[in-house]
Amino acid sequence: MTPNDFLPVLITFFVVGGFAGITLIATHILGPKRYSKEKHDIYECGLDYIGDSRKPFSVKFYLVAVLFVIFDLEVVFMYPWAVNFRHLGLFGFVSMGIFLVILTVGLLYEWKKGALEWE
């Protein structure tokens, strides 16, 4: 493992990012530009728009995000364990088993509390 292994990733970033950037600039230059108030308004089924859309939204979305952080951390935590599983053997199985059971109990608690209910 050397920095050279990741150098091509950087090249990919430049190639793909460059393509996206050039595309956006080209379409900005090529397309017509005719300003009109109605055209630059927000689309709401052709009617005049009402109010602003920067409003509070359902807390459920936030809850899903919080649950995601917990479970995604769990997944990342399991990767090194998974790669070395064959060397760890029964010890690895039991210790990760305990960790997973605790997390599953957490999931069951959220479930029973109704955090996963959408009405």
């Binding site: 990733v9 990919t12 996206a20 090529l30 397309g31 530009k33 005719r34 630059h40």
Partner: peptide, 29 residues
């Protein structure tokens, strides 16, 4: 490419332009 490039008046200009670039790049990377 030949269509008009519209940015709504009330939109946040920087994020509005960055969003499609981000989506495409994340997929391409």
């Amino acid at each position: 490419f030949m269509k008009e490039d519209i940015i709504p008046d009330k939109a946040n200009k920087i994020l509005f332009v960055l969003a499609p670039t981000f989506t495409f790049c994340a997929a391409g990377f």
